[in-house]
């Protein structure tokens, strides 16, 4: 059964640590060129088609700013 996922990053609170991207098995996440109000390059879905909703990124995010969604297709 195939699944598709998506994440929502609370970009105001993201600290751009990159731990989520390093632990994403599908290379969905990158750090943006833009910065948030604190000057951090926040995480975003650079390749949204890749995401499987596995929750790995949210599990390792030290600031708990990732919400994960998943659907069966």
């Amino acid at each position: 059964m195939a699944v598709k996922g998506a994440i929502v990053v609370d970009t105001d609170k993201c600290k751009g640590c990159g731990v989520c991207a390093a632990n994403c098995p599908t290379q969905t996440i990158a750090l943006s060129k833009q910065v948030n109000g604190k000057g951090y390059n926040f995480a975003y879905m650079e390749n949204p088609d890749n995401c499987t909703g596995c929750t790995n990124c949210a599990t390792v995010c030290p600031d708990a700013v990732i919400t994960v969604y998943r659907v069966k297709i």
Partner: peptide, 15 residues
């Protein structure tokens, strides 16, 4: 993506 990001599909959120 907007069809995936719906409350009923949420599998992980901050406690």
């Amino acid at each position: 993506v907007n069809d995936i990001i719906r409350p009923e599909n949420m599998v992980y959120a901050k406690t």
